[in-house]
Design a protein around this nucleic acid. Structure first.
Lengths: 198, 198
DNA sequence: TGTACATCAGTGAACGCGCGTTCACTGATGTAC
DNA sequence: TGTACATCAGTGAACGCGCGTTCACTGATGTAC
């Protein structure tokens, strides 16, 4: 028998493993049997800690949310100003995708209309929260005079969010041959030229 | 009994209906029973015209490809110059999403790693073909002096592809309240400023 | 133009696989005395 | 510190539903004569 763990620790472990599987295979390919195996358990053991598949997905989404929001916070904290924070954030997104984080893929897969309505709603809430945080950075940049004041912060934030999305798809398609970090740098130049003052 | 049709006509009809369902529900939510019902047939009748579910999805992807490539061609043909062609293309993407075309959603759903490898490969090929066409427009713009020559056409094309993607997600989340056409106009301003000469 | 026949799209019942979920049981862990 | 007991995480067999797929049959359509 696999080593026992108290249910809180197990929940966290399972939710983390679920997010990893989700990134690799999407919500359609995600199944309880593989999840259980990835943490060294038997499928039925999952039900000691979660009510069911949907409950696991919900927990994985929470882990995802904390991770992504944490990325924004870290960038804001570490950078001296909003524009550099955005650049740093983009670089880290690129790195996350490179290491298999598959952020856009998770977003798309979880917000797909086939799933439970609650799951979709939560995914969309997470996305809106992300956009709102980027928007706040843009506003701050405007106040500090780094970003042109005639720009709509929402539009800029959505453009920012879209910068890595297509690249992630290409990355999947072409694998190693596609250099996502180099791409991020080039697209950042374009973005900067679009929004920066001067 | 439903009116008989020759198999070629039925195939086209079914493939079109499949694409519509795909846009509404994603590949996970797509099932043979609903597809059959949407064309007024019984599930088993689908197998008169297709080898199986995967074959239907393949046909739907072909319809999708022709539709999207057709959009690019039309924009190029109707516009006087590359920059206007891109603007026109963006507007039409926005309109397509508004009317439920769900382009980004189909891309994401069909390229998800859970499906048949062949299906994923085809989706990625379609996407690359799309990017290549936009890239060609960018190059043409550079030759004509409309677009700055120090810009990497691939980066510009990928940025272009990303412009409507996040908006599509928000559109799903917020529904009518989110004006995708207005968003497209704002983001176009940003894009134009990033790539246009002067 | 009318009749006989072949073809083939559409039907509905049945099958079977995958997979999420349940349940009675086990045995490890930690607590009470 | 040692023993008895309660708790609870982990197990494996079994169930059942959804859904893609098969198959023998039907009857409409179009062609040959």
């Amino acid at each position: 028998m696999t080593q026992k763990m108290n249910t809180e620790a197990r929940r966290e472990q399972i939710a983390g493993a679920a997010l990893k599987l989700l990134a690799e295979r999407g919500s359609e390919g995600f199944n309880i049997a593989d999840l259980a195996q990835s943490v060294g358990l038997v499928p039925s053991a999952i039900y000691r800690h979660f009510e069911g598949r949907e409950d696991v997905l919900d927990a994985a989404l929470s882990v995802f949310r904390d991770k992504v929001y944490g990325l924004v916070e870290a960038a804001r904290r570490e950078a001296g100003n909003p524009l550099i924070a955005l650049e740093l954030l983009l670089t880290r997104h690129a790195r996350l995708i490179e290491s298999g984080g598959a952020v856009p893929h998770i977003m798309a897969s979880m917000s797909a209309p086939e799933g439970h309505a609650a799951r979709r709603a939560k995914t969309e809430r997470i996305f809106r929260g992300y956009v709102a945080r980027v928007e706040a950075l843009v506003r701050e940049g405007q106040e500090r005079g780094q970003i042109r004041s005639d720009i709509d912060p929402t539009a800029a934030a959505l453009l920012f969010a879209g910068m890595i999305q297509p690249a992630a798809l290409l990355r999947h398609a072409e694998g190693e041959r596609f250099d996502i970090t180099a791409h991020a740098a080039q697209v950042w130049d374009l973005f900067r030229r679009a929004v920066a003052r001067d």
